[in-house]
Simulated scan of single mutants.
Amino acid sequence: MFLIVGLGNPGREYENTRHNIGFDVIDFMAEKYNISINRTKFKGVYGEGNINGEKVILLKPTTYMNLSGESLRQVIDFYKIEKDNIVVIYDDISLEVGRMRIRAKGSAGGHNGIKSIIAHVGDDVFPRIKIGVGAPKNDLVSHVLGKFSKDERGLLNQVVEAATDATDTIMCKGVSEAMNLFNSFSAK
């Protein structure tokens, strides 16, 4: 069983913001693979289904970004999911809009959602997909809680689809293969 987690903040005021790109990927995956995100438990909303013969849970923590690890930990404990079978998808200000990076492990790099996950999982070794949201020109908080421009949204639609394909590759062929295939991805 795989746990696919998209990070973001709950509530209408955060929809389509840079910080919620992880939620956007989960919503896209749910639609593509016909998985209903309709259960509320584990401090999140989630759905269960199958992707290419693998049982998956698609999770959107509702703890707000900085406490994402609380939700993840509850799902891991309940379903006994191995760390290698977790994929976390989130925003990254160090990547330009239209880019993504896959990593098998690593530090939080200043991302509070990842800090929380590392603290609750007790390890930084889990696959992750970082989606570029661009560097802030001024205030970090207003940048990540801000909306994308129309042009940026067009690039992001391509990245969301690529992140979905990368997740599929991680599940079927492993994180190394996904890194080889997708770390050079750049939307046009």
Rank of each mutant, 00 (worst) to 15 (best):
A135Y: 13
S107H: 10
A135G: 11
K147L: 12
G146D: 12
T169H: 10
Y64P: 00
G154N: 15
H120L: 13
E177Q: 11
F182P: 07
H19E: 00
D92W: 10
I114W: 07
A187Y: 03
E15D: 14
G174Q: 06
N38L: 02
I170Q: 01
I170C: 01
M179I: 09
S149H: 10
I89T: 03
K43I: 05
V87I: 13
G146C: 10
A162M: 11
V125A: 12
E177H: 12
N138G: 15
E161T: 03
S149Q: 10
R12S: 15
L58A: 02
Y46G: 01
G6T: 07
H143R: 05
V144R: 00
G134M: 04
M171Q: 09
N66C: 15
I4S: 02
E96N: 15
P10V: 14
D92S: 09
G122C: 14
D91I: 06
S186Q: 15
K147W: 12
L145M: 05
V5S: 09
A166E: 02
P136Y: 14
G22D: 09
T62A: 13
A108Y: 08
A104S: 14
I86M: 06
D27F: 08
Y46K: 01
K115F: 04
Q158I: 03
I4G: 02
N183S: 08
L181S: 14
E48H: 05
T40E: 15
F182L: 14
F78I: 08
N157W: 09
M1G: 13
K32Y: 11
D77N: 14
A108S: 14
I170Y: 00
G22T: 11
I4L: 15
D151Q: 12
P10T: 09
F78K: 08
I51L: 02
